[in-house]
Amino acid sequence: MNLSVQLAPKNKQGLLLTNPVMTASGTFGYGTEYSRLFDIQKLGAIVCKGTTLNHKDGNPQPRIVETASGLLNSIGLQNIGVNALIKEKAPLWASWQVPVIVNIAGETIDEYARIANELDGVAGIRAIEVNISCPNIKAGGAEFGANPKSAAEVTAAVKTATSLPVLVKLTINTSDIAEIAMAVAEAGADAISLINTLRGMAIDIIMRRPLLGNIIGGLSGPAIKPVALHMVYKVAGAVDVPVIGCGGITTASDAIEFIMAGASAVQVGTAIFTNPRAPLDILEGIEQFMKKEGIEDIAELVGAARY
């Protein structure tokens, strides 16, 4: 049975995954946090916490609110910064079998390019995921992902700054996601991942104030899955680069739905908080499904439900 997927066919280095199950940025730390709970080397890839040029403190508390079948977060990209990441995290990743992809976020196009440039050629880093979709920061983030022109500019700048494969992660807090996806692919993105969280909020009716310290946050979890699936379906039909599906994936059948909608790989995020082994359970479930359905190559399933 062949589960491997190539996520950057046009890139010299390529991004070959042994299987299509990845972890979503922000939900899996730097990978090390989960390594004592299960064999993380079996994963297709790990996408690390969103990384900025300098370290970032993040947003005030509270940062987490549970909602119906979902989770609102307003972490605000708290992270150690790109230099600390290269010094403290990458050396360990270099000894790992599982590829690590670094998610990056900037406040300006120049910042994105500088971070990408710092990461270029660093052992242990296999690709970059450009975050133009974080709803939780004041400057940058989703601003760049909201219109095709700036999304393409960020993508082009990052591509120029690094020879690593470049994934671009999109927001759906925009008017036409297919248009953004096409602009990003045109600008050289090797693959597109979607979706990031949806903007949302919750209110404490006794205290009469928003529950999140940042007032608004990003909604994730099973609640957003149908929306994410539709967006993946839409984008996969608009671009010819690989699409990575993300948004509320909790079970193997969820993951297979995304693959059938046109995703070459999937990212598991919020489900990990409830079940840390969720990515592996999903991988095993995909294998069982393929066995049962007599499918030899995962590629046969990609886009299988497209009409």
Partner: peptide, 21 residues
């Protein structure tokens, strides 16, 4: 605190300290 991941990955349960969250 409200604990989300429980293992230090999600950064949801932070507290302010003299040296940052």
């Amino acid at each position: 605190e409200t604990i989300c991941c429980g293992v230090g990955a999600c950064l949801g349960c932070v507290v302010k300290t003299a040296t940052g969250y």
